[in-house]
Amino acid sequence: MTAAVEFQSVSRQFGTGPGAVRAVDAVDLTIAEGSFFAMLGPSGSGKTTCLRLISGFEQPSSGTIRIFGQDVSTIPPNRRNVNTVFQDYALFPHMNVRDNVAYGLRVKGMGRAQRHAKAEEMLALVQLPDYGDRKPGQLSGGQRQRVALARALVNEPRVLLLDEPLGALDLKLREAMQDELKALQQRLGITFVFVTHDQHEALSMADSLAVFNQGRIAQIGTPAEIYDRPRTRFVADFVGSSNVLPPAVTQAMGGPARWASLRPEHTRLAATGPLSGTVTALRYLGAATRVVMKTGDTEIAALVPAGHPLPEPGHSTAIAFDPKDLHVMEDE
């Protein structure tokens, strides 16, 4: 399978001298054709800069970027067969929805009737038929999102880039759009690359994802790999709400003297166990209750399914788990 996007030790530095910031630091990355790829990380981790390097709005300070095998170092954004759904959607306020969607075809010289027909087709695909005559200002956030999607997809890009595409939507709409984006990607077979700081979004939508930290990729893998076997403390901490255990605690729990992670849902409360401590907080989550227990300086969370007895804060309890669920990390 060809690589849709390939980074070879790509760096992007902002500024010069001692105040310089390496937003992207020697990143190697391969995104497979037809995949739904997520770039996950906290703000300032370099994920958005990586996206802008693909679209061409940033140029690498060093390294090579290839799109379908072709070096794009000297190719400006308008000649890359890659389209972006912007975080703020960036719909043109002075054009109606149809002209917005047809914009890419218009600047390529397609005739009015043909491009309008194609725009209507796309609007139907994103479930906004009959919205062509409206102005972007008359649409809701979710509708604008779909228009931005249609405007990008009408150009039939080889790669579609999405910059925090669901960030501005409320929770319910966000979940609906997640399903829709996923279905759309599978239907069109276009490579989707999306940037997000929301680990649930990344885990639920992506075929594979890269976790960014301070300009570098902390780990690349499928959602299951990243969730179950985080390579570093940062990944375990950032992806999901895992317990990150220092070497001493890992050892006390029967593991080697290394950092380890333990998922709250893999633990249960017991009268006695390898690790005991004091209950400090309870948080009701609906289907379960999250119980936080403190042992020494380490806080460990356990999930107690609804219907099971709950401890009182201040009381002591112990945690039991299956030793195979204790994941020892490769790096710190």
Binding site: S55, F57, P77, N78, Q87, F92, G104, V107
Partner: peptide, 27 residues
């Protein structure tokens, strides 16, 4: 005029002069 508007135009394939005529000037 937000920068993302100009980037969107470029992203969709417009040259500098097309962006000027169809996005910057009208806005």
């Amino acid at each position: 005029v937000p920068t993302s508007m100009l980037e969107a135009s470029q992203d969709l394939g417009a040259s500098r002069s097309q962006t000027f005529r169809t996005v910057i000037l009208p806005l």
